[in-house]
């Protein structure tokens, strides 16, 4: 394999041809913020928080998708880079509920002194986002910063979709589409600020093509897509990640050998995920592996007790 030499933040780096600038940065332990990037999905380079400065390039370039070239001189922390990342984070934070983004993202936002309030107070939630027509939008007076805040969608027993938290990173679409599940139950609809993740004609998930594999939830970086069980525990203020253990095991529902991560709180499974770094699943599961655990919950002295009652009792005992 051919090797390529480049300079990142003054450091000489040699990497294999064909890797991305993000890979090259990581090879020298220089982390970059990312939102729409995931190792197991094709880069869509839409969130633009991973942009870096490449000498000779008119604009900044997305490190997640740009391939290395010999002789590149790259800045990942220049004033220009910091500026773009700050403003992009401000745009997101001023329009989307980012309360559930991961810890590293929060740290990046702090390090860039992100101030979403500079665009004005957030506008009130709206309920017509799924009906908007491309090329047309309502009168803008500028008093408040428009947001994507809207009612949460609860239309089935397994998932909730809270698009007030959606940054439109396309990951769920990719995971549901040809990067993994190939079910294509959801896509981006509409245009511009009114672009949104949608089923055909905004039908409910059970009416649409969804097969409830949960792989969209598995890749969502902002908590916009969530297991209904987690959502309800959070609503009841019973979701306590610091009390949860995560145990890796193998799914029992067929012979493929998918690895599961069982998230257990007070001896109850509260969520099932799959490790992204495992060659069999790459983080993806089917409906059985993701949700088929209920039968081990129903046994014993806890038989038929709703999970929130059990957890509430466990908390009062501890």
């Amino acid at each position: 394999m051919t090797e390529v030499a480049l300079v990142i933040d003054g450091v000489d780096v040699v990497v294999n041809e064909g890797v991305t600038l993000l890979d090259a940065c990581r090879s020298i332990a220089k982390q970059q913020p990312t939102l729409c990037y995931l190792e197991t999905l094709a880069p869509v380079n839409v969130c633009r928080v991973c942009v870096v400065e490449v000498e000779g390039s008119r604009t900044l370039v997305p490190s997640c998708s740009r391939k290395v070239e010999g002789g590149m001189v790259v800045q990942t922390d220049s004033e220009r880079v910091r500026h773009s990342r700050r403003v992009v984070f401000e745009m997101l934070a001023s329009s989307v509920n980012l309360a559930l983004v991961d810890h590293p993202t929060r740290e990046w936002m702090e390090s860039y002194n992100v101030d979403p309030a500079r665009f004005g107070p957030p506008a009130a939630p709206t309920s017509d986002r799924d009906q908007r027509h491309a090329g047309h939008h309502g009168e803008v007076v500028g008093g408040a910063a428009e947001t994507v805040h809207q009612p949460i969608k609860v239309d089935n027993s397994l998932y909730v979709r809270d698009y007030s938290r959606c940054i439109l990173c396309y990951k769920c679409v990719e995971a549901c589409g040809d990067d993994a599940q190939n079910t294509f139950a959801i896509a981006v609809a509409g245009r511009g600020f009114d672009a949104r993740i949608s089923t055909e004609f905004d039908v409910t998930l059970p009416e649409g093509a969804c097969v409830f594999c949960g792989n969209c939830i598995g890749v969502c970086p902002t908590g916009a897509l969530m297991f209904r069980s987690e959502h309800e525990l959070r609503q009841a203020d019973l979701w306590e990640e610091d009390r949860q253990s995560v145990t890796r095991t193998v799914c029992s529902f067929c012979g493929v050998g998918c690895n599961l991560e069982l998230h257990v709180q007070d001896n109850r499974i509260v969520k099932v995920t799959s490790p992204q770094d495992h060659s069999v699943t790459e983080g993806h599961l089917c409906i059985k592996g993701r949700f088929g655990y209920e039968y081990v919950q129903e046994l014993g002295d806890l038989a038929s007790t709703p999970v929130d009652v059990v957890l509430r009792r466990a908390r009062s005992d501890s």
Binding site: S157, S252, G292, E298
Partner: peptide, 10 residues
Amino acid sequence: VQSGGFDSPI
């Protein structure tokens, strides 16, 4: 016996 235990929308 096992898969009947969860509420599958499909």
